[in-house]
C-alpha cells in the first residue's frame, strides 16, 4: 500500500466554513449513504459521469481542500491511473512486452487495491465484442464499459462520502450515528478507537525512533518480521495496560455507559431543503438511467 502521509490526515481540520458544514450531521450521513446506494445501482456511463460531476460539486460545497482530497481519491483508486496507463495497450500496435508480469504483480500487492488489477483485467476477461487485441488477449467493449463504470461509481461514492461525512469531527460522527439508532456499544467502541489512534500512533513513533536509534533498517528478512512482531506485541501490551488505567479513571468519574452528547443536533430548514434537493438529484439520476438504458 503506497499511500502517502497526506492521505492519512483527516479532512475535518482542513475544511473550512461551508454550506455543508452548516447542515445537521445526520442529514449528511443519510445523504452520503443514499447517494452510495443509488450510484452503485446505475449503469449508464453518461449518468455515472454526471454523478461524478455532482460529487465534485458537493466536494466544492463542503469546501474540501483540493490537494489533500485529490491525494485521497487518487490513492484510493490508483486504478484510474492504471486505466490511463492501459489505454495505449488497448490500441492496436502496442508492444506486448511492455506489460511485464512480475513488476505488475508486485505493484498489485503493494497497492492494496487489487481493484487496480481487476479493472485492468476486466476488458480482457469480459466476454463480448472485441475492440482491441493485446497479443493473445482481446479487449471487449463490454469489458471496457464495465471497467469505466466501476471507476466512475467508486469515485462518485468516495468523493461524496469525503465531502459529507469525512468533514465531520470523528466524535460528532459517533454522536450522529447514535442518533441514527446505531447500537451504543459500537459507538463507544468507535469513540475510544478514534481517541486512542492518535495516542498509540505517538507511541508507535517513539518505539520506531528507538528502533532506528539501534540501527534497525527494515529489510525483507526474518529479523525484520520478528522486530515488527515485537513492535506490534509491545504496542498491544502497552495498550492493555493503558486500558486498565483508563477504566479506573472512568469508574472514578462514575461512568455508567450513557453517551453524553456535548453537541445537540437540530434538523433545521436548511436540512429540509438539502434533503429535498438530494432526493430530487437522486430521482433525476434514476430517471435518466431508466430513459437511457431503455433507449439503448
Amino acid at each position: 500500500m503506497a499511500h502517502g502521509d497526506a492521505a492519512r490526515r483527516p479532512l475535518e481540520r482542513l475544511a473550512g466554513a461551508s454550506p455543508v458544514a452548516a447542515l445537521d450531521p445526520r442529514t449528511r450521513i443519510l445523504a452520503a449513504v443514499g447517494w452510495a446506494v443509488v450510484v452503485v445501482g446505475l449503469s449508464s456511463l453518461a449518468v455515472l459521469a454526471t454523478a461524478v460531476v455532482i460529487a465534485l460539486a458537493a466536494a466544492r460545497a463542503a469546501a474540501l481542500p483540493a490537494r489533500p482530497t485529490a491525494t485521497k481519491v487518487v490513492t484510493m483508486d490508483g486504478f484510474v491511473v492504471a486505466l490511463l496507463v492501459m489505454l495505449p495497450f488497448t490500441t492496436p500496435g502496442a508492444p506486448v512486452a511492455a506489460l511485464p508480469a512480475r513488476p505488475t504483480a508486485t505493484k498489485v500487492v503493494t497497492m492494496d487495491g487489487f481493484v487496480v488489477a481487476l479493472l485492468v483485467m476486466l476488458p480482457f476477461t469480459t466476454p463480448g465484442a472485441p475492440v482491441a487485441a493485446l497479443g493473445p488477449l482481446t479487449a471487449s467493449a463490454e469489458g471496457v464499459h464495465l471497467a469505466l463504470a466501476i471507476a466512475l461509481k467508486a469515485n462518485a461514492v468516495v468523493l461524496m462520502l469525503l465531502a459529507m461525512v469525512g468533514t465531520l469531527e470523528p466524535a460528532t460522527l459517533g454522536h450522529a450515528l447514535r442518533r441514527l439508532a446505531v447500537p451504543a456499544g459500537l459507538i463507544h467502541l468507535m469513540l475510544f478507537t478514534v481517541r486512542y489512534i492518535a495516542v498509540l500512533g505517538e507511541e508507535a513513533t517513539r518505539l520506531r525512533t528507538a528502533m532506528r536509534a539501534r540501527a534497525f533498517a527494515p529489510r525483507t528478512d526474518r529479523h525484520t518480521l520478528a522486530t515488527y512482531g515485537y513492535l506490534v506485541g509491545m504496542l498491544l501490551v502497552r495498550a492493555a495496560e493503558r486500558a486498565e488505567r483508563v477504566l479506573d479513571a472512568m469508574r472514578c468519574r462514575g461512568f455508567d455507559g450513557r453517551l453524553v452528547a456535548l453537541t445537540s443536533f437540530r434538523f433545521a430548514r436548511a436540512d429540509a431543503v438539502a434533503a429535498a434537493g438530494a432526493g430530487l438529484v437522486l430521482g433525476l439520476l434514476v430517471t435518466a438511467e431508466i430513459v437511457l438504458v431503455r433507449s439503448a
Binding site: F192, T193, L200, L235, A239, L247, M250
Partner: peptide
C-alpha cells in the same frame, strides 16, 4: 475501553 484501545492498536 480495552476493546477500543486494542482496536486503535
Amino acid at each position: 475501553p480495552a476493546a477500543g484501545l486494542l482496536s486503535a492498536t
